[in-house]
Design a protein around this nucleic acid. Structure first.
Lengths: 211, 211
DNA sequence: TCTAGACTTGTAACACGTTCTACATCAGGG
DNA sequence: CCCTGATGTAGAACGTGTTACAAGTCTAGA
């Protein structure tokens, strides 16, 4: 966790942060192996266990290559989070969310995601802490995560897998719900809330916002 | 209050995390110098500039002593944040908050604090990132910060420096506002929101929650 | 096929958080 | 007044993120 506070410029060649798409098949394959290794190590030992040398070894790439694909440990972990969230979004596009009211549907998607995260506490700790620690240089990846989250909530709010118009007020409400969810997740990761508290705090927020 | 929660506590001497009060005068003085040095370095160069060796040198204590007082860089920074917030709370207890409605009063205190933080972007970056990165071992200090924040908001909500009863619903609303504020602060620190966005997002949240 | 340049690899080196060691200082009780 | 244990000091040492570098390998185009 050093440097890069104000000057993100470097001798960048071809891959500023190696986007998921593009590159040769071998490169996409390497990228996949790296992210898989990241998830595996994080799931087993959390943030501290995701050591760059270990990731490189596990993914069978050289350390330098790892850094060419992901310029820092934080980029790496946030990218892993972005990949997981993107998968969820694709899944949520398939069919309508169950629930009769917006409240029920939002709680359904958020609780489902929350419980999935809680099943892998170490992984969640790693991803959430990386997300929270990210600085300016990770804007792109962070934005990707934020977009996924708001998309899923917006779909749940409307109850349809396709997204119609979202009013200004709805967008504001969705942003607040995201904030509360993230905040609750942090509290859970750091042991200041238990699983029940998380669900309850989101439920209260949704109720207050959707009345 | 400062008790250590889960870990296998070892040969702990006298100062598990050196609470603000207690200890000899020389010790309180050292603690003050350390936190002052932390704030000074953070204000100048942000999170990365708060290097333990530099803090120790600036505070004129040995590195080992610094670690005796604060067991990690994160503890150090979150403690600094807690000290600043506590000062604010004491100030806010002196007189009533200006504003005719709860909305106005809450916006007044939060905007004042937000603007104070924005005047020292580097310092804010350091404190906010430390707060977000904190793990389980920093629960005590984090809780202190959270309490300060909710106290100030609760006072503003009621418009009186003394705290009367706070209903369950009010407490929930205050928690959500805190979440939104923190989240906005992160976005600002990482360059994803500008100063105006921060104020606006809080304003929207308060409006939606207090209707 | 040959070659230039990009991409990978393996490894060493560096920075900073953290821990450890050996010694000095100080305060209090006999 | 001295002993003793806690506290402080100075500095080395260690681990891990990050960077640097020399050499091997793959690919596209002449």
């Amino acid at each position: 966790m050093t440097s890069v506070s104000t000057e993100p410029r470097d001798t960048d060649g071809p891959t500023p942060a190696t986007p998921p798409t593009g590159g040769s098949a071998a490169q996409r394959e390497r990228r996949r192996r790296i992210l898989d290794a990241t998830i595996a190590l994080a799931a087993e030992g959390g943030f501290d266990a995701v050591q760059m040398r270990a990731v490189a070894e596990h993914a069978e790439v050289a350390l330098g290559t790892l850094y060419r694909y992901f310029p820092s440990k934080i980029h790496l972990l946030v990218s892993a989070l972005a990949r997981e969230f993107t998968k969820d979004v694709e899944r949520s596009a398939v069919r309508a969310t169950p629930g009769d009211t917006a409240h029920e549907r939002i709680m359904y998607v958020l609780n489902r995601r929350t419980r999935a995260l809680q099943k892998q506490p170490k992984l969640t700790e790693a991803l959430v802490r990386a997300f929270m620690f990210a600085d300016q240089s990770v804007t792109g990846e962070i934005h990707e995560v934020g977009t996924s989250l708001t998309t899923v909530i917006a779909r749940a709010m409307h109850g349809t897998p396709t997204l119609g118009e979202v009013t200004e007020e709805e967008a504001a409400i969705i942003r607040i719900i995201s904030d509360v969810w993230l905040s609750a997740l942090i509290s859970w990761v750091t042991g200041r809330m238990d699983a029940e508290d998380v669900e309850k705090s989101i439920d209260v927020a949704v109720r207050l916002l959707l009345r």
